[in-house]
Amino acid sequence: MTWSLLAVTIGVFLVETLIGGSQNINVLVRLGAKTNELIQMGQWWRLITPIFLHIGIFHIFMNVFTLLYVGQILEPMIGHWRFFIIYIVSGIMGNLASFAFGASSVISAGASTSLFGMFAAFLALALIYRENRFLTELGKSFLGLIVINLIMDLTMTGIDIWGHLGGAVGGLLLGYALGIPRISRPKMMFRILALVIFVVISYYMYVKGMVVYG
């Protein structure tokens, strides 16, 4: 899945470049960047498509490198489909957070919502399997990475901090709900609870976004 997601992301960037440039606002909107007004008008797919769009060569380089690095660790650990679900669905939750709490005039795109979800999934696994030293150390490392990046978000312009926060919350809940294959932890009731919390938060953010921008 890591290589498939990389291929799609790079392919979309090439399309952006060929039809007018990845920093062209018209191109970004045309290909599905997150714009609050258009989501409010019913274009719900703009909560998904921004995951694969990037603004400029530095933006895609950093996200592709991060996806490759993290994916090669996380995907073999949790399996292909769990990895795919966390990547896509935490990205959607990040875009929902941006829709609900971000500035209405901002056009946003990028895989960082999903990447924060993957960082937080490591934290979830560290909490579930505390006796595993490897997972515990990974969890600490990625928690530090989340905190550092969020602090950097506060000091930089043009960064969608709400998208990053939402992605991290989504990854934490999904990581807890899905766990590691063939290991019966956490208990099913806690997995279901994590999913319920995920759905409730997502629904709340969608409704909030529709009310604020409607």
Rank of each mutant, 00 (worst) to 15 (best):
F61E: 08
K187T: 01
S184P: 06
I85E: 07
A194L: 09
I146A: 05
L68R: 03
I92D: 04
W81Q: 14
I57H: 08
A177W: 02
E75N: 11
L178E: 00
L53N: 01
A120H: 02
L173K: 09
I148W: 00
L115V: 07
E131G: 12
S112E: 14
F190M: 12
L68G: 14
M118K: 01
R133C: 01
E137Y: 13
A111R: 00
G166M: 05
H54S: 15
F119I: 06
I60K: 00
A103C: 00
G117N: 05
S105E: 14
A124M: 05
F190Q: 07
G144K: 05
G79F: 06
M77G: 02
G167N: 06
F119N: 08
M156H: 11
N149L: 09
S104Q: 15
G102P: 07
D160C: 09
G163M: 06
G139E: 07
L138P: 00
I107D: 06
L67K: 00
F198V: 05
Q72S: 08
L150G: 10
L193T: 11
I180T: 10
A126Q: 05
T113F: 14
G110A: 07
I197Y: 10
I73R: 12
E137A: 06
V147C: 10
H80M: 07
P76L: 14
I86C: 01
G163V: 05
R133I: 14
M62W: 10
N95T: 13
N63E: 15
I55E: 11
F122A: 08
G94Y: 04
F190L: 14
R133L: 15
I128D: 04
I161T: 15
G139D: 03
L172K: 00
W81E: 10
I128C: 07
I146Q: 04
L174N: 07
G163S: 09
L150H: 08
G94S: 11
G117M: 03
P76K: 12
L172N: 00
F134T: 14
I183P: 01
E137R: 10
G110K: 01
L172R: 02
L145Q: 04
P181I: 14
I88Q: 03
A177L: 02
I107E: 07
A120F: 08
V70N: 02
M156P: 02
I192K: 09
Y87V: 13
R82L: 01
M152S: 12
T136R: 13
V196T: 13
H80Q: 12
R130D: 09
A103V: 10
K140T: 09
L125A: 09
G166Q: 05
S108P: 01
G171Q: 05
Y176D: 01
S184L: 11
Y129A: 11
D160E: 11
A168W: 02
I78Q: 04
L193V: 13
A194P: 03
L125R: 04
F58S: 14
